[in-house]
Design a protein around this nucleic acid. Structure first.
Length: 297
DNA sequence: AACCGGGGCAACCGCCGGTCG
DNA sequence: TCGACCGGCGGTTGCCCCGGT
């Protein structure tokens, strides 16, 4: 135990690289290129495994590497991209020339620690949606009007969706409803407090696991400095029941109204928040949703 | 001066998917 | 078809430095 396939020869050095080792690796790669990493150590005269050489080159030695602090533009891009694709560091790095996935991952991990540690300085009234502007929204519709229509379209390399909504219980404590109060099973449609994050499915799922308000407060700092807007819409079905075609129809009508008013939604995302834990059977709910909504708008 | 705790970050580890014989 | 091998990736570790006590 304790040895790995790539490093199964004896005398494999590990740990930090010395300047001499760096020099050997640079000299070899610049003259021969990096064809086969497993051959590099022997040919370059290094007591390392090929993986270690590759990592050292990619993350530190290659000539087009960028060093130093991230610029504010880069930071913003990282935050937005992370909101869109989650912990796909290599993907995020591909949008930042000269930066490595490792560097971005390190940055994010320390950044997120700091942000979560620091108590939120924004209003503790969690029914208001915070953005980077000093915004105070009088209603969800106000938020919608002032944000969605002014935001640039989501890049096609990102999660290419504008709307996110779910079917869920009415226990969400921090919402700002549109006040649809008729007696259908969808009693209202609301925006989650995390509106403003460009979310991917994983982020959404994570947020839903942090369902209670006190826990959600941890995530409000993450909403700062975000420009791209994805709008999660919470379709309430009254709780405890199977989502019905009537639920879907009503939701669809609501969406269509908004889309017509805003002219800015090209697609949407169906996501069963409750996963069947609260009301009805998850796969059945999704089947109803899928059959009720077109594949694109 | 010694210790300690946290942050930053380079490097490692294990897993996975692709390739090739 | 299968297994060995390899590179890529994301999670994690652990070292080093620095500031506070």
């Amino acid at each position: 135990m304790g040895h790995h396939s790539c490093c199964n020869q004896q005398k494999v050095k590990r740990g930090l690289w010395s300047p001499e080792e760096d020099e050997k690796l640079i000299r070899y790669i610049t003259t021969h290129g990096c064809g086969c990493w497993s051959e590099v150590p022997q040919k370059a005269g290094l007591q390392r495994c090929g993986k270690s050489c590759r990592l050292r080159w990619i993350n530190y030695l290659r000539p087009d590497i960028r060093r130093g602090r991230f610029t504010p533009e880069e930071e913003k891009l990282i935050i937005n991209l992370h909101g869109a694709v989650g912990n796909r560091w290599a993907h995020i790095a591909s949008h930042l020339p000269g930066r490595t996935d490792n560097e971005i991952k390190n940055y994010w991990n320390s950044w997120i620690k700091k942000k979560i540690r620091k108590p939120s300085t924004t209003s503790s009234n969690n029914t208001k949606i915070n953005t980077n502007q000093d915004s105070h929204f009088t209603s969800a519709q106000d938020f919608f009007n002032r944000n969605l229509s002014t935001k640039s379209p989501v890049q096609d390399t990102l999660f290419p969706l504008t709307f996110m909504f779910d079917i869920g219980p009415t226990t969400t404590t921090t919402t700002e409803g549109l006040g649809v109060t008729d007696n259908t099973r969808i009693d209202h449609i609301n925006f989650h407090e995390n509106a403003g994050i460009l979310m991917n499915q994983e982020t959404w799922q994570m947020n839903q696991h942090q369902h209670h308000q006190s826990e959600m407060l941890q995530f409000t700092p993450l909403m700062e400095n975000l420009e791209n807007i994805m709008l999660p819409i919470d379709v309430q079905n009254g709780g405890g029941g199977q989502i019905s075609e009537a639920d879907c129809l009503q939701q669809r009508n609501e969406m269509n109204e908004w889309i017509e008013a805003q002219n800015s939604c090209s697609s949407y995302f169906l996501w069963d928040q409750a996963q069947g834990n609260v009301g009805g059977d998850a796969s059945s709910n999704m089947a109803t949703l899928l059959s009720s909504f077109p594949s694109s708008l």
